[in-house]
Design a protein around this nucleic acid. Structure first.
Lengths: 337, 337
DNA sequence: CGAAAAAATGCACTTGTGTGCAATCGCTAT
DNA sequence: ATAGCGATTGCACACAAGTGCATTTTTTCG
């Protein structure tokens, strides 16, 4: 049997022993506004430093709020999602929270499992970036005093807060831009994900066009990705009546669409074809694309999330909407040809 | 005073009361291999379900391992980092761990703060993807029985495990490819980040070239980004002796470099200029780029991390190396011009 | 100098688990 | 019927913190 002490975390008791004070004194030293004399405080800090003491937030979380926020997300490699996660973790951290990332598939089943994890770790709040959580589980979260914030998911679940961008505005504006450019045969490219957000952009665009007496050819490719955009372009330009202006419900789709349109069908953008996207991912601004699109204002959105979190828990479910910001680049002509 | 009970988490005690058994029975029901009769188990599960009970992993983590792994990462929006985080969270989750993401700047100061958070939450292990943690803090982590895994950071710290790709191989192979393509004036594009990985790719490439009697013009732009690649291209092709073959230490740099080379200087790739990158981000495979590069084998790397985590703690610090996989696309000629 | 007020300190309880140990229960074999 | 034995069960403790309350200790003021 070895005498070597296994390395393990140092507790407040050890610090207390070394400093010659009670454990309470240690606790109070690390608690804001607690009453400790300057002398003991110094002794404690010194001992803590020598031993490498760190307050155990798990134990703290047993009594009060855990300061843990769970982020449920799928498709994390997508540029827009990656940025969302980045901005959110940053802002949450800045406001004293810590983020647990739960990486799921979009299907309800695995989102359920994610939500349960959230409960296991006593997260103060759960932020859902993708996937549709079942209403029953949301209720469980709320019943446990957990806050639920859904981002860009338009399922309206009783008790959860919703936060999203104004998709309708983007749909209308996209139509306006393409018509101003003189496009006559309009197309809409979407994925088979059929998220509420994507569907809304599509329907608003199509309906606004119908109101102007213009028909829109809708093409639905595979998942929301660059490759689906490519596939959509192959399908669209293989047909007789090719569009001269398209709204892709996502930048990734747009970029794949543009590449095939130019390289496989020899089209020039914006002369032969105008393209509008949505999200404003970094790649949309790259020299090869210069895509006109709508920026999701991630910083304001993350600010809203933090704001919701810091609010005293409200019984009523809230719904906040943020305007996307049009970003004019060169994939759409500024005026008629 | 309201009689309404505040919503709060349901504890094992409540479940025990409802099921008419002791709290131990509840605990044992949710512990693998514990001794519970089928009858009580059923009663417990039923009560738990009715109340919406979820084991408190925080409390569990007080006694044994917390199953929390901290991921310290900077530059999360970079495609390669986003993928790393994605793959790691997936694999960790699959092996029963949960990931806490700590988003830091690359500066040592904020990495320190991140490491301390790691200790606060009693993470079993810390995985550092970017940024240089100070050795003293790593020691604290190790002293507390925490495992530290550094990925692609070549600082060799006593007690930590290192995991990285073979940068030397990439440097040599890049040179081989460019020379086989008949390139005569070689360039190397790097950023001012001066990470160990980037530096190694650079020096190996330059030295291997020197061994063949070829000089390499090294250009160092700003941070590791698309824009820095663009800037580097403007500098490089503004000079008299422009290169006809370059190795960019990162795909992002390479893509920016390619765009400016083609659009601002009218060069054709790979006829006038051959380009090799590193990382194999999704965009490298896009039709507009078709970049020849080296894939970081993320899945095997994540497997290694999980493997290291499941190993019983070893006193000796380990160092594992993974071979990057060459990906041949069209940015380099297959043979001499 | 002494009483009263204020500040500091320690005890003990709380949070929700897992688990060693002892007691109990149920069943079998003699 | 009863001893013997293994499977259950419950008690009590440990984990690491925060905090109300009572008890010192210190400070202040008359």
């Amino acid at each position: 049997m070895s005498d070597l002490k296994l390395p393990s975390f140092v507790s407040a008791q050890m610090v207390a022993d070394r400093a010659g004070v009670s454990r309470s004194a240690v606790s109070r030293t690390f608690t804001d506004g607690a009453s400790v004399s300057e002398a003991t405080r110094r002794k404690v800090l010194e001992a803590a430093d020598a031993l490498g003491y760190h307050v155990n937030h798990l134990a703290r979380g047993l009594r009060e709020r855990s300061n843990i926020v769970c982020l449920v997300v799928a498709d994390m490699t997508t540029p827009i999602r990656a940025r969302m996660v980045d901005v959110l973790t940053r802002k949450l951290q800045a406001s004293g929270k810590i983020t647990m990332v739960i990486n799921t598939e979009t299907d309800t089943e695995s989102v359920s499992a994610a939500l349960r994890q959230t409960l296991n770790y006593r997260a103060d709040a759960t932020v859902v970036l993708s996937g549709t959580p079942p209403a029953s589980l949301i209720e469980t979260c709320l019943a446990n005093g957990q806050q639920v914030i859904l981002i860009n998911r338009d399922e309206r679940l009783q008790g959860s807060s919703n936060l999203g961008v104004d998709n309708a505005m983007a749909g209308r504006e996209a139509l306006f831009l393409l018509r101003r450019a003189g496009c006559e045969r309009l197309g809409l490219i979407t994925s088979n994900a059929r998220t509420a957000s994507l569907v809304e952009r599509e329907t608003v665009f199509v309906e606004a066009a119908a109101a102007k007496g213009v028909q829109v050819v809708v093409t639905e490719a595979g998942p929301t990705s660059y490759e689906s955009g490519q596939e959509a372009a192959r399908r669209v330009f293989g047909r007789s009546e090719a569009p001269d202006g398209v709204f892709c419900v996502t930048d990734l789709l747009a970029l794949g669409f543009m590449d095939v349109a130019r390289q496989d069908f020899g089209l020039t953008i914006p002369d032969d074809l105008c393209v509008v996207g949505f999200d404003d991912i970094e790649q949309a601004g790259w020299a090869s694309y210069q895509l006109t699109t709508f920026r999701q204002p991630l910083n304001p959105m993350a600010d809203e999330v933090v704001d919701l979190l810091l609010q005293p828990q409200r019984a009523v479910s809230e719904r906040r909407m943020i305007e996307p910001i049009p970003v004019w680049r060169r994939s759409v002509r500024p005026g008629k040809r």
